[in-house]
Design a protein around this nucleic acid. Structure first.
Length: 524
RNA sequence: GCGGCCAUGGUCUACCGGUAUGAUUCCAGCUUCCCAAGCUGGCGAUCCGGGUUCAAUUCCCGGUGGCCGCACCA
């Protein structure tokens, strides 16, 4: 069984995520978060807020989902998110009309590179007719080209003015930029981010959370003066080492080396690459199974001065989870042109008005969440003949060819090794038994701790079974109320990864949990 | 969308042209109490539509969804 199949089963039974609208037969590409998954998703978003908004002194906004057509004409989505598709009348195969046409003309004209599609459907139909192009599969006759738009279309108001559900959260930030700039310092650089849903009407979504039609993005737009390409806090991450993939080769590089190595376009990009590397590591993505891929020139959009993707290894293959793009002044310039408003700002140092440049860090939350589930999953341990477990608490070694989740980790059940900062519940509270007033004492403790934490609380079943349940959703700490608690107000705190315990005062619980979370501690 | 495989309690699964097996989860009770103990009882399923048939969960067709491959992947 592939790991993602097992993850999907666990997701259904443990309330991580599930298909949408199940009673009516799920529509592919739509998933919902259950209570446990939702807690984790919120933690991922909050850690992003902490690292990419709060600690930087940036600003978070929440912009509209429904977007008038002209905004997406300016951004290029109206044209670029629609693919010209031709269908074979015989075998019903669909293919991109523009690539079919361009390949044919290229083949015909040898080195002639001038065969670019002009954006008109008639041109495709004409070229197909003139050149007698047939279906590459079955040689059948091709139907006229039609646009297949990847955006969800809707209508606004009585007149049903054409609008779309936004295909990315970025445009809302760009259109809000002039006011945000005035209201928040009127100075560059300015960082603005948002967490929100975006929509893409995929032709045939597969791979669960990896390709959804409705998904959540965490997007940061950093507006800056192109004359100032360095980032002030660069020194704090200068020695961070990251893995890169470039032209199929893998290399380790420090942040301070990235610009000289031609990986990062400027210091700003280098800084944010380091920050996202730290972000991923903090959440529990294995550093040995993630890398930053430097996109070759032909994959970079014409307006971009450099794109780098974060990729993570999963049982679905390598998936892209972050897109970094130096978008220059393309977006603000386009909105200035289409809206006929001034998007330029005055730069005091040079006494001139410029259109700011933008560096974008765009992350998919759902893909990241899925990667976390895969990377933190721990298989049930295999005992040796004497019944001994593999050493408990050890993280799976990052050896060549090792599949981490299959290595023994000292437990008789499957569990998740989430770092405390993203674990759904930060602590469990159990009475050793239901009777003799232990249950009431535990309820009181849970109530107390719920002021500061998300608490997993269960009373029934044996204590061992409840520890196992807590492990199964990756809860890092379990507090147990026992008979000693009744006379000295202490409880035991059990650490998830080694199952070991120590006794602490009830009055200290909140402080101990907080400290453990901040130190990412998962063993005694 | 095409081709291949598939669809049975919440989850995993067995069998069968006469409405269904087992495990696990869940609920209640008894018992035990620091790493998934035991016992008793209980809830709970044939994806949807059509066809063949006295009778369809089983066979056939279509749909929907899933997995693999192709295409698509902003």
């Amino acid at each position: 069984m592939e790991l993602h199949e097992r993850i999907f089963e666990l997701a259904l039974t443990r309330s991580f995520f599930m298909p949408s609208n199940e009673p009516y037969g799920a529509v592919s590409g739509f998933y919902e978060y259950g209570p446990v998954g939702k807690l984790m998703k919120s933690r991922i978003e909050n850690l992003w807020r902490q690292m990419f908004i709060k600690e930087e002194g940036f600003h978070e906004v929440e912009t509209s989902i429904i977007t008038p057509e002209i905004v997406l004409q300016a951004s290029g989505h109206a044209a670029n998110f629609a693919d010209p598709v031709v269908e074979c009348r015989v075998c019903k195969t669909r293919m991109r009309g523009d690539t079919l046409m361009e390949e044919k003309l290229k083949a015909k004209g040898g080195e002639n590179q001038g065969a670019r599609w002009d954006g008109k459907l008639d041109t495709i139909d004409r070229v197909i007719k003139e050149n007698g192009i047939t279906c590459p599969k079955c040689k059948g006759e091709l139907a006229p080209a039609a646009m297949f738009n990847l955006m969800f279309r809707t209508g606004i108001g009585g007149e049903q003015a054409v609008a779309y559900a936004r295909p990315e959260t970025a445009q809302g930030i760009f259109t809000a930029f002039p006011r945000l700039f005035r209201n928040h310092g009127a100075k560059l650089p300015l960082g603005v981010g948002q967490v929100g849903r975006s929509f893409r009407n995929e032709i045939s979504p597969r791979k669960g959370l990896v390709r959804m039609r409705e998904f959540t993005q965490m997007e940061l737009e950093f507006f800056f003066d192109p004359a100032e390409q360095e980032y002030p806090a660069m020194a704090s991450v200068a020695d961070e080492k990251m893995r890169f993939q470039r032209n199929g080769a893998s290399e380790m590089k420090k942040t301070s080396e990235l610009v000289a190595a031609g990986i990062a376009t400027n210091g700003i990009m280098a800084y944010f690459l380091a920050r996202q590397w730290q972000f991923y590591r903090a959440m529990g993505i294995r550093e040995t199974e993630m890398w930053l891929r430097v996109l070759p020139k032909e994959e970079v959009p014409h307006y971009s001065k450099g794109n780098v993707d974060m990729e993570v290894q999963t049982s679905y293959g390598n998936i892209e989870t972050i897109g970094n793009a130096y978008r220059t002044d393309f977006d603000l310039g386009a909105h200035a042109k289409f809206s006929k408003k001034d998007f330029s700002v005055f730069v005091e140092a040079r006494k001139e008005k410029i259109i700011p440049h933008v560096f974008e860090v765009s992350m998919g939350v759902d893909r990241l969440f899925f990667c976390l589930l895969e990377h933190c999953f721990r298989e049930k341990d295999v005992k040796d003949e004497a019944g001994n477990h593999a050493p408990a608490g050890a993280s799976p070694p990052a050896q060549e060819g090792a599949v981490g989740w299959k290595l023994g980790t000292g437990k008789d059940w499957e569990w998740f090794d989430f770092p405390p900062v993203v674990a759904p519940y930060q602590a469990a509270v159990f009475p050793l038994m239901k009777k003799d007033g232990l249950a009431e004492k535990a309820q009181a403790l849970a109530g107390l701790l719920r002021k500061d934490f998300d608490i997993f609380h269960q009373e029934g079943g044996s204590i061992g079974k409840r520890y196992a349940r807590a492990d199964e959703i990756g809860c890092p700490y379990a507090l147990t109320v026992d008979y000693d608690t009744l006379h000295d107000d202490t409880v035991t705190i059990r650490y998830r990864n080694d199952g070991k315990q120590e006794r602490i005062k009830i009055a200290d619980c909140a402080a101990v949990i907080k400290k453990n979370i901040s130190e990412a501690r998962v063993t005694l």
